[in-house]
């Protein structure tokens, strides 16, 4: 019996992520959603700088590598010229909210129908775990060895709060992509609800783009290697601390894709 293959995922593509990182989960869902909507052949992926750079080794779609933080500008240009194509980008929190916040905000304000997926792991992952604008209070990183000081660095940036002030955004959602650990008497289990919700968010974001709207989805995930935690501890941290700083929410759904 043949194993079902997704046309947008390489048969032998191996992600470049550390074991337990949910970035790969996001790529898998993007591939699945492209297949389900039948838009693989007209999809153009724009990669940013960070762990998402090497996504092109996993997803079999056209790929443009953007400079650090500039993916939304490149996506906008491609979409304006190739109106019937599906243009999406994968960014990290450092890429989208630190160096590239101007490009993100202006693309969002123009409401150009593109899709931005932001994987928020609360640190700079690829450079080795430095503080990001999204690092929660007290979190120890390589550049904040005594924990992030809110008085000096300000509170963590909330992408959904910033973007919800722009009227031309059509779909704005924050989901947790990390499977929730469930502690039973004798063992630990993981729930699949978070993953299913994330897949739905990816699907709805693409649907919004097909209906000519700007969509942005933030995924709260882990970076267990740079947090210096075990896989289980990092997942626990997301569900104990992460969701308090970044509560999952549907901030905008202009076309009502969520209900359909």
């Amino acid at each position: 019996m043949e194993v079902k293959q997704f046309s947008s995922i390489f048969e032998n593509g191996v992600t470049t992520y550390c074991p337990g990182c949910e970035h790969g989960l996001l790529l898998k869902f993007i591939g699945m959603a492209l297949d389900e909507l039948g838009i693989t052949e007209k999809a153009i992926m724009v990669g940013s700088v960070g762990c998402s750079t090497l996504a092109y080794k996993f997803l079999n779609v056209d790929y443009v590598q953007a400079p650090h933080g500039r993916a939304p500008a490149i996506m906008s240009a491609i979409k304006l010229l190739e109106k019937d194509k599906v243009v999406f980008g994968i960014q990290g929190d450092g890429d989208a909210l630190s160096i590239g916040i101007a490009e993100l905000i202006h693309a969002a304000n123009r409401g150009i129908p593109i899709t931005v997926f932001m994987y928020n792991n609360m640190v700079f992952g690829m450079t080795g775990g430095q503080m990001a604008p999204t690092t929660p209070e007290g979190m120890k990183t390589t550049t904040t060895p005594f924990g992030r000081d809110i008085k000096q660095m300000g509170p963590p940036l909330d992408a959904c709060k910033i973007l919800s002030s722009f009227p031309q955004i059509s779909y704005l959602k924050r989901v947790v992509i990390t499977p929730k650990p469930i502690f039973t008497k004798d063992r630990v289990m993981y729930s699949s609800k978070e993953a299913m919700d994330s897949y739905k968010a990816v699907l709805n974001a693409f649907k919004t783009q097909l209906m000519e709207g700007f969509s942005f989805v933030e995924f709260i995930g882990t970076c267990n290697v740079n947090w210096k935690m075990s896989i289980l501890d990092s997942k626990k941290y997301v569900h104990e601390v992460g969701v308090k700083v970044y509560p999952p929410a549907l901030c905008r759904d202009a076309f009502g894709v969520e209900k359909k």
């Binding site: 693989t40 007209k42 153009i44 092109y56 779609v61 056209d62 443009v64 590598q65 491609i78």
Partner: peptide, 15 residues
């Protein structure tokens, strides 16, 4: 890079 469009894949890359 205008989409695969049932042809080969296009990569514009500098890494």
């Amino acid at each position: 890079a205008r989409g695969r469009n049932y042809g080969p894949r296009h990569i514009i890359n500098s890494i």
